[in-house]
Simulated assay, not measured.
Amino acid sequence: MDENVVEAPSPPEPRNPLENGKDRKKALAKSPSGEIDHFLLGRLYPEPHNVFKSTAAVDPSAADVIVALDTNALLLPYQLGKSDLAGLATVYAKLAGESRLFLPEQVAREFIKNRDRKLADMVQALEDRTSRLSGWDVNVSPLLLEGFADREALTKAASDHEEATKAYLSQLRALAKQMKAWRGDDPVSALYAATFGKEQLIGAGGAE
Rank of each mutant, 00 (worst) to 15 (best):
F148P: 03
S33Q: 14
L18C: 13
E3G: 01
L169P: 02
D84C: 10
I112T: 00
G135N: 10
G147R: 06
G135H: 08
T130G: 07
E127I: 00
V65E: 08
A27F: 13
R173S: 15
A108I: 00
S134I: 08
G147W: 00
I66G: 13
A27T: 10
Q200H: 12
L18W: 01
N72R: 02
P60K: 08
Y92F: 15
V67A: 02
L154K: 02
A204K: 07
D37T: 04
R173L: 11
E146L: 11
R115Y: 05
D137C: 06
Y168V: 10
A73Q: 09
L175D: 04
A86H: 03
A8D: 14
T55Y: 08
L172R: 06
I202E: 14
R151K: 14
D160T: 01
S189F: 09
A164C: 01
A29V: 04
E152I: 12
V91W: 13
L76P: 00
L144K: 08
A207D: 07
N20L: 13
H49E: 15
T90F: 01
A108K: 09
I202Q: 12
F148S: 14
A56Q: 03
G42L: 09
L74V: 05
A158N: 08
R132P: 08
M122F: 06
G97D: 06
A125Q: 15
L119N: 00
P9H: 01
F102M: 02
A193H: 10
I66S: 11
L44E: 15
L145Y: 06
F196L: 15
L154I: 13
M122W: 12
P48D: 12
T130N: 10
K30V: 13
A68M: 06
L169W: 02
K25T: 14
A125F: 05
T55V: 11
P17G: 07
A120F: 00
E19N: 09
K166N: 10
D37P: 00
D23R: 02
P9G: 07
G206C: 11
E208M: 13
L101T: 05
G203F: 04
Q200T: 10
P104E: 13
A164K: 07
D2R: 12
A108T: 04
E127S: 03
L172M: 09
S83L: 09
K53H: 06
R129E: 15
R100V: 01
W136Y: 11
E35N: 12
R24H: 13
T195S: 11
A157S: 07
D23T: 07
S54A: 15
R132C: 06
A108V: 14
A204F: 05
L133I: 00
A29M: 11
Q171E: 10
L76Y: 13
A73C: 12
G42Y: 10
A62E: 13
D128A: 14
L95C: 04
G81T: 00
L154C: 05
R151N: 14
L154Y: 01
L143S: 09
E35W: 01
P104A: 12
F102R: 03
N4H: 05
L145D: 09
A63Y: 00
G42Q: 09
A8N: 12
D128W: 00
